[in-house]
Simulated assay, not measured.
Amino acid sequence: MSQDGVDLKTSLGYLLKEASSALRVAMEEVLRPLGMNVTHYSCLELLAQRPGLSNSELARGAFVTRQTMNVLLQALERDGYVTRPAEAPVGKALPTRLTPRGRKSLEKASAAVRSVEVRMLSGMTEAEQADAFRSLQSMIRSLRDARLPG
């Protein structure tokens, strides 16, 4: 037990962070040979599901700053994975879309990431997986619902 009374061996929050870290490392390992990292993959996946997202929306969805996402989008646009209009059609946001090259790259990355998820869940039955899914969703809801206004 640490001085503040939290036993890391039994702390669910610490265990979740450790699982998240292990998942990220495993994803980075399978994405690296494809010339990607987790943020790059997340950006492409978000755009496949919701074409036209802005820099700010992509940053929120990938859990990075707007500045980090802007640098990534510039690189993805330069390399032909995404397109953005020269001028914003409305307001200041530049809607981003995947190119055919971006879609093809995403297909390979999605298969690699799925293999990590399959490996992560391989020691669990379908019922255990469903229970884990429900439990994690409940934790997320509880934390989001408990946020203070402002």
Rank of each mutant, 00 (worst) to 15 (best):
Q3P: 15
D4H: 15
G5D: 06
D7H: 12
D7C: 15
D7M: 08
L8R: 13
L8I: 10
L8Q: 08
K9Y: 13
K9F: 13
T10D: 10
T10N: 14
S11E: 05
S11T: 05
S11N: 15
L12V: 14
L12G: 14
G13T: 07
G13H: 06
L16R: 14
L16D: 12
L16N: 12
K17N: 07
A19T: 08
A19Y: 04
A19N: 08
A19S: 11
S20Q: 09
S20H: 08
S21L: 06
A22M: 02
A22L: 04
R24G: 03
V25C: 07
V25A: 12
E28K: 06
E28W: 00
E28S: 09
E28Y: 02
V30R: 09
V30N: 07
V30Y: 07
L31P: 07
L31C: 04
R32Y: 05
R32L: 10
R32G: 10
P33M: 08
L34V: 07
M36G: 03
M36H: 05
N37P: 07
N37R: 02
N37G: 12
V38T: 13
T39F: 00
H40C: 01
Y41R: 00
S42P: 02
C43Y: 00
C43F: 00
L44V: 01
L44W: 00
L44K: 00
L44E: 00
E45P: 09
L46Q: 11
L47I: 05
L47N: 06
L47M: 06
A48G: 15
A48D: 12
A48Q: 11
Q49I: 08
R50W: 07
P51K: 02
G52T: 08
G52N: 07
G52L: 04
L53C: 13
L53R: 11
S54F: 08
S54N: 08
S54G: 12
N55Q: 11
N55G: 06
S56Y: 12
E57N: 10
E57M: 11
L58H: 04
A59H: 05
A59F: 06
A59D: 03
A59Y: 03
R60D: 15
R60W: 14
G61C: 11
V64N: 12
V64R: 14
T65S: 15
T65H: 15
R66L: 09
Q67N: 15
T68L: 09
T68Y: 08
M69V: 09
N70S: 15
N70R: 13
N70G: 14
N70H: 12
N70K: 10
V71K: 13
V71P: 06
L72A: 07
L72Y: 05
L73M: 02
L73E: 00
L73H: 02
Q74F: 10
A75S: 13
A75H: 09
L76C: 08
E77F: 00
R78Q: 11
D79R: 14
G80M: 03
T83P: 01
R84E: 00
P85G: 04
A86T: 06
E87N: 11
E87W: 03
A88V: 02
A88S: 11
P89D: 01
P89M: 01
V90G: 09
V90L: 15
K92G: 10
A93L: 02
A93C: 03
A93K: 07
